[in-house]
């Protein structure tokens, strides 16, 4: 009780996270001064990042652009790959959930392809498409697809028999059963899958950009590593984290709407 009362005060939602951030900044400072001289401290990072943050959309050159401009390139690529992942993954999930025959035939393959790293898919994408951008889209799509596939399948399998009975008694046609009963009943599961898929898509883009060197946050990160500007590596890491967090929050807002 006492600890409860002490940890709950006015503005705790603001002050406690700030305290946590200050603590991590201190550790960072200590690490950079005492342990590794190559690691830029918080202040140096801030000063070096300032032009990228203050004018986030500026384009000074092909390799020197505002951080949000880079992020925008990455997001565009993610959007393409993610869209393909959902368009392919959702029907596969439905098939796996609806048909025992289909599930028995393809579930082993799904289970084998699912844990494959994006780094392994990317070279295959380059072989298939010859260009870096389509290869990145391919890698995102194939890696981000699995949570959607599996969650949709689980959602379809857990539709209450009652709902299916309603469809059977009314003799709804196949398409009507799909759109009036199956899809609405599966939506909450589908959106959980969509949210997880988006998280993976965002993870994959950074790896894909680093390997292909295409412009974007990941590409910028790798380029600045080669240019020995380590401050910008940290800037990129934080940007990737913040955008990933925002994407996840947005998706869980949508998800909650369907769960109520």
């Amino acid at each position: 009780m006492i600890t409860n009362r002490r940890s709950e005060f006015k503005l705790d939602w603001l002050i406690l996270p700030l305290l946590g951030a200050v603590f991590v900044l201190l550790l960072w400072q200590i690490a950079s001064t005492m342990w590794s001289k190559d690691l830029p401290g918080p202040l140096r990072t801030w000063n070096a990042s300032k032009p990228y943050l203050v004018k986030p959309f500026e384009k000074r050159g092909e390799l020197d652009q505002g951080i949000l401009r880079f992020a925008w390139y990455s997001l565009l690529l993610v959007a393409k790959g993610y869209a393909i992942a959902l368009l392919i993954g959702t029907p596969i999930g439905f098939m796996l959930g609806l048909s025992k025959f289909f599930a028995k035939s393809f579930d082993p393959i799904v289970q084998i392809l699912r844990p494959v790293s994006p780094l392994a898919w990317l070279p295959l994408g380059l072989v298939l498409f010859q260009k870096s951008q389509p290869a990145a889209v391919f890698t995102i799509a194939i890696c981000a697809m699995w949570p959607t596939v599996l969650n949709t399948a689980v959602g379809v399998r857990s539709i209450p028999q009652d709902y299916l009975n309603v469809a059977r008694v009314l003799k709804l046609s196949r398409s009507k059963t799909l759109f009036k009963v199956l899809i609405p009943a599966t939506l909450p599961y589908m959106f959980t899958g969509f949210r997880l898929s988006l998280g993976i898509a965002w993870l994959v883009i950074v790896a894909a950009e680093m390997l292909t060197g295409s412009p974007g946050v990941g590409g910028f990160l790798w380029q600045e590593y080669n240019a020995l500007i380590y401050e910008h590596i940290i800037l990129c890491i934080l940007t990737i984290g913040v955008i990933g967090f925002i994407l996840d929050r947005l998706m869980s807002l949508v998800e909650r709407r369907f769960k109520s």
Binding site: Y163, R168, V169, L170, P184
Partner: peptide, 18 residues
């Protein structure tokens, strides 16, 4: 099954999204 038999189940079995 068919709609020539109207069924009232023990649980109302309404589709919650409608």
């Amino acid at each position: 099954p068919g709609p020539d038999r109207g069924i009232v189940f023990q649980a109302p079995c309404l589709l919650p999204w409608m």
